[in-house]
Design a protein around this nucleic acid. Structure first.
Lengths: 236, 236
DNA sequence: GCAAAAGTGTTATAGATACACCCATGG
DNA sequence: CCATGGGTGTATCTATAACACTTTTGC
């Protein structure tokens, strides 16, 4: 088999909310000293997701990855002339309050105030942000950004940090509780000068799509037709 | 460099609408004769998308790929013991009316009535269908499934084939025309016993996201704040 | 004129946004 | 008892689903 092979690598846009929406960057020592996304090579037989988690743990000490999902893959030239890469991008979400012990060459940077960073990596951060923004609207994605118990105000703060505008905690609760995504725990938060806040939790610790996201929703009437009625079924 | 390398491969869920929603399958001759998705190896230095288009053209004669986007990537065992694969999945959309000359081992199959097919490929078809269904609701994705000119009835038929339920052509027009995705051409379709239909066209021939897809849309009041107002900005 | 298909306009309804008001606690 | 933040309820608004009605053609 004289086929040319490639080295598979993974890298992640690691996002967390801590006042601001932040991403984890790692400073190259050998190169021009510019920042880049954490990641590395995939071992033979290793799944991509497993490789991603391994690198996040080994290289930047992040073990609290609450959600991990793929972004784009693309090919790239390697550092050596005869090395060819297939680069698989990931989005990783870290709960608020988890403070991993980072190595000295690794830091959190506010998304929107990124330092000098490889062009492709900058695009990846934008893609990840946009993806997360969308997921907040039709899933329980926020579960991966908050601690196990949280108040509505804290949850709204997370939404605001990601979306970039004010979110009404009242309406947030209405929507999420109606869809069964969050539930009150019964315990209350220590008061800070006002009425103590109820503590909530997410009912699932994995991503669940809660809303249809379908154009022109299925008609309420004439529902009980075939499982996949097609155009030709409708007429004639 | 003693690192183990992998062979990158691409494959596509090719979708088109022809009465039913259909996908293109290719019958393996060497193997157990079961069906699989079209695709193949990526050449050194070749981009993934370019490799995907090349295989669609060379192997199944499909050149009218109106839209191509990535799905998931994953690692897999190869046919040889020491061959290791990185498999990148794609979704390809073919306009209605384009009838590529398929090789004898390739056929269109109705999604939902798939023949014996590899498990992973079956999942990919489901993923692709779901992705397309979502995109119809917040983008002009249908442009890649219709010919350059079409009537509203034909467009609604495409939506129905993908969504699986009846779609009101009137409301479809209202939404798509308001968002600037379609526009009347001025010409009319030959009558078929009733009033001749206006012919429409999509205003863009590439994917455009037309609706926000953001939770708790930005408030109409208090709009002119910073580009990314954060939680801490809001109070205090 | 009649049937058939396309297009127009309007009403009803669901869902979310905005906001006024009440509650509970600390000082 | 006052200030502060949390929680409840509701009016408003908006987008769309549903559908009756009109228009335009072929026969």
């Amino acid at each position: 088999m004289d086929r040319k092979l490639a080295a598979p690598v993974v890298n992640a846009v690691v996002l967390r909310v801590s006042d601001r929406l932040e991403t984890l960057l790692w400073r190259r020592s050998d190169d021009s000293g510019c920042w880049s996304l954490p990641g590395g090579f995939v071992r033979e037989g290793e799944s991509l997701e497993r490789a991603m988690r391994r690198h996040l743990l080994e290289k930047v000490g992040v073990s609290d990855v609450a959600h991990l999902e793929q972004l784009d893959s693309h090919t790239a030239a390697g550092t050596h002339p005869d090395l060819w890469l297939v680069d698989v991008g990931y989005l990783a979400l870290i709960p608020r309050g988890a403070e991993p012990a980072l190595p000295p060459d690794t830091e959190w940077h506010a998304v929107g105030e990124l330092p000098s960073i490889a062009f492709g990596h900058s695009i990846a951060v934008g893609t990840a942000h946009e993806r997360l923004r969308g997921k907040l609207s039709y899933s329980n994605a926020a579960f991966a950004l908050v601690p196990p118990r949280f108040t509505l105000r804290e949850l709204a703060d997370v939404y605001e940090a990601v979306l970039g505008y004010a979110v009404d905690a009242t309406n947030l609760r209405r929507v999420l509780e109606r869809d069964g995504l969050i539930a009150p725990t019964g315990s209350r938060r220590r008061s800070t000068g006002g009425r103590p806040a109820e503590e909530f939790r997410f009912t699932r610790d994995e991503l669940v799509v809660s809303r249809p996201l379908a154009a022109f929703r299925a008609p309420a009437t004439a529902r009980g037709r075939g499982s996949a009625p097609s155009a030709s079924t409708r007429r004639g």
